[in-house]
Design a protein around this nucleic acid. Structure first.
Lengths: 250, 250
DNA sequence: TTCCGCAATATGTCTAGGCATATTATGATT
DNA sequence: AATCATAATATGCCTAGACATATTGCGGAA
């Protein structure tokens, strides 16, 4: 099974395979092979512990991982049962474009196109989710790969949450990077959509008008406070979001 | 298509909050609040166990969860250190369209537009990742919401992996559903892109030519075997993929 | 100075047992 | 027969201790 999941275990395991992992794999195999169909009830932890010759907690770990994968449901007293085949719900990973370009050896640059500080307009307040009049920093910038336009970025930063941004020029450093290095965020929401390039977008990205573009919007929170809203626009030919199902080994 | 993290714990917790969860939250708070900046080394498991008044394993559970979240890195002897602010890489959940429409009370229907069995052409072989001449089932269908075209689906099914599909007509049942109910898959890969509607797409989706559309491609494996390749095309106005960063409580 | 081996350390994982809690089955009561 | 209290059961979570293993730092030898 190919699993180039960026999901390399968070811990570089070098030694032997843990027993709980072996058990997890063995049980998982029974399920995905269909030997244990949906609704089938697994043996109890005690029985499995006896069968595998290990402590109950080791079994519990394996079963807990299966439950986290939604392969099984566990209920007290009712036991552990196999779920319906995996729901059509996937975990995707979106990678950082800048990092990816650099990793691929492609020269990357950020260029600021506009920078304005203002009190939040009704529209700003709506997109950024702050109250009217809150000071915000509005940025427009261009990401370049090998010198050519790669993506257009429109960003709003809540200056109440990030006062340091007021004095930063963002001439050549991308605001995303800058923020990441300073503000740990706790939650984010993404929207992915498609849009036809308008005149501005077409000009900056050097594409024809009406070319289909991928638009990714991201809202970022730090606890309850809104940090930033960003919309990044990629021309369709240039970029695809490649995402992989995340294989979680345990 | 809002989907606030379906991330409810896979196990309905009703009782008290587990100690390991409390500890996880406490440590997480230290990190996201910035009190422990990137590079900071956490106290050892022994020290934390003493500080929190619990067994080392309970601490290990909490730290393990932090590591899985990539908030910290753990290395033997070197200890546990806080990572750089979260890399710009996110985990998205894409939910099943059909299920979501139904959940929202919107009538859903699938309509088959084309169905052909053939030996894999060079192009089929490339997209589906099978060898030339392998029998494949090629399907085109339309997803309707409230009777109106919602998405166009182009699918290839590997008949060596799913021989039962040969006799299925797919008149009104969406192949995605059908497959999910039969074939548990073990891995999937997605690509999300944008494209301008060509004449065919425009006709089926009842949109103007060149309208920007969101295209989602998915490849599905069962262990090493390729099951199916599907491309679903949504008109830009109709649909956005909304995804929320997945909060995994532990 | 440089290199190598050894000891100290922190994590990775497991065991055996225990209490808590949710749920089901059972039996007693009306 | 229907209802309700109680016991049995399976999981959820924890403890205390143990051994294994990777990594680091240090001291001695070349």
């Amino acid at each position: 099974m190919t699993m180039k999941g960026g999901a390399a275990s968070s811990l570089a395991r070098t030694g032997t395979v843990p027993r709980s992992r072996e058990i997890y794999d063995a049980l998982r195999q029974k399920i995905v092979s269909g030997e244990w169909p949906a609704g089938h009830r697994l043996p109890s932890e005690h029985e499995l512990a006896r069968a595998f010759g290990c402590a109950r907690m080791t079994i519990g770990k394996a079963l807990g991982a299966l439950a986290e994968q939604r392969l099984v449901t566990r209920r007290r007293r009712a036991g552990t049962t196999v779920n319906m085949p995996r729901p059509q719900e996937s975990v995707l990973e979106i990678h950082d474009i800048e990092a990816e370009l650099l990793a691929a050896g492609i020269p990357y640059a950020y260029e600021s196109l506009a920078r304005r500080i203002r009190r939040a307009t009704a529209r700003d307040a709506g997109t950024l989710g702050v109250s009217l009049g809150t000071p915000v920093l509005a940025l427009t910038g261009l990401h370049r790969a090998s010198g050519r336009p790669h993506a257009l970025e429109e960003r709003l930063i809540n200056l109440r949450a990030v006062p340091e941004a007021r004095t930063e020029r963002f001439r050549a450093i991308s605001p995303g990077r800058w923020l990441l290095q300073r503000i740990p965020w706790t939650e984010a929401e993404h929207q992915i959509g498609a849009l036809n390039a308008d005149a501005d977008i077409a000009r900056w990205l050097a594409i024809r008008r009406d070319t289909a573009c991928l638009a990714i919007e991201r809202n970022t929170w730090r606890d309850a406070q809104r940090i930033t809203h960003v919309r990044v626009i990629y021309p369709c030919g240039e970029h695809r979001l490649v995402a992989r199902f995340r294989y979680r080994p345990l």
